[in-house]
Design a protein around this nucleic acid. Structure first.
Length: 111
DNA sequence: GTTCTCACA
DNA sequence: TGTGAGAA
């Protein structure tokens, strides 16, 4: 597989990741975080799930899942939930901004 | 399977 | 900071 093929492969992975939307049960299975705790965190403003239009079941994308895992790590390290929420929020904010800039430079330099 | 709420540790 | 139980 040459370099171009690898780049394409990674872009496809990213697309799939962006479209990956799962229910609370699956998130719980993947992360090991009980569904009860996920709802509790949501109640405390840690995460915002997209509620699927018709039904009322919560839907989570990979950023939500990532956020939960980060928060769980912070709690394990002794942070309070509120502190963990704020810290993770800030981390993901700067991360997303950096990648947004990176994406911009990539499109600017294309063609 | 999911939702909520109330009580409890 | 969570959990258990019950009900829809």
């Amino acid at each position: 597989m040459d370099e171009n093929q690898q780049n394409l492969h990674h872009l496809l992975d990213f697309e799939l990741l962006n479209k990956l939307i799962v229910g609370i049960g699956e998130v719980s299975d993947i992360t090991g975080i009980p569904t009860r705790k996920i709802r509790y965190w949501e109640e405390k403003g840690a995460i915002e799930s997209e509620k699927s239009g018709e039904g009322s079941t919560r839907r989570y994308n990979y950023l939500n899942v990532k956020k939960m895992l980060l928060i769980q790590e912070m709690l394990d390290e002794g942070f309070t939930l509120d502190a963990a929420i704020k810290k993770v929020e800030k981390r993901m904010e700067t991360l997303n901004e950096a990648f947004r800039k990176l994406a911009n430079t990539m499109t600017e330099h294309r063609e």
